Simulated assay, not measured.
Amino acid sequence: MTQQHHLRGVLLASSACILWGISGVAASTLFINNPHLTAMWLTQVRMISAGLILIIWGMLAGKHPFQIWHHRHAVWTAVSYGLLGLIPVQLCYFEAVRVGNAPIATIIQFLGPFIISIYYFLFKHVTPSRIELIGMIMAFIGTLLIVTHGHLNSLAISPVVLFWGGLSAIGVATNTLIPRTILPKYGALTVTGWGLLIAGIFLTLLQPMWRVHLTITWPQFGLLLVIILLGTVAPFLMFARSLSDILPTTASLMDAFEPLAATVFSITFLNVQLTSFDFVGGLLIILAVMALSMNTHKMLQFLHRRRAHSS
Rank of each mutant, 00 (worst) to 15 (best):
R130Q: 12
L19W: 03
D278C: 09
F236L: 03
T43R: 08
S244H: 12
I227R: 00
S154L: 10
N34M: 11
L300M: 08
G51H: 06
V172K: 08
I32T: 15
I108Y: 07
P65T: 13
I170H: 02
R46F: 07
R72C: 01
N271G: 10
L300W: 02
L247E: 14
L284K: 00
L283K: 03
P113C: 05
F94I: 04
T127F: 06
H6Q: 15
A102W: 05
F302Q: 07
L214E: 01
A13E: 03
P248N: 00
F31E: 01
A234I: 15
L197G: 08
T215G: 04
R8M: 09
I141L: 00
S266G: 14
R8F: 04
G150A: 06
L152E: 09
L30N: 02
T249K: 05
V212A: 09
L183D: 06
S129K: 08
L152A: 11
T148M: 01
R46A: 04
A74T: 00
H6W: 07
D255A: 14
S266A: 15
N295F: 05
S311H: 11
L224S: 01
A96M: 03
M59T: 15
R46N: 07
T43H: 09
I227H: 00
S311T: 08
S23L: 10
Y120V: 03
L223A: 00
V147H: 02
L224D: 00
Q44H: 11
I55W: 08
F277L: 05
G166I: 03
T296W: 03
V147N: 02
I108S: 06
G195R: 03
A199T: 13
L60P: 11
H70P: 03
K298V: 07
A291Y: 03
I118A: 12
H36V: 12
I286T: 04
A169K: 07
S310R: 13
L189Q: 10
E258D: 02
L189S: 14
I55P: 11
V97R: 01
I55D: 07
N101L: 10
H6D: 08
R241P: 04
L243N: 01
E258L: 00
P219A: 00
I104P: 10
M290L: 05
H64E: 12
L60V: 09
L133A: 10
F123R: 14
L7S: 11
A173L: 08
L274W: 12
R46T: 09
M40K: 02
P235R: 03
T174N: 00
I267N: 09
Q3E: 07
F257V: 00
T148F: 03
M238I: 04
L196F: 15
K124E: 12
F110Y: 13
F269Q: 11
I115S: 13
I118V: 14
L155H: 14
D245W: 14
R180N: 13
M1V: 12
A188I: 02
A251K: 01
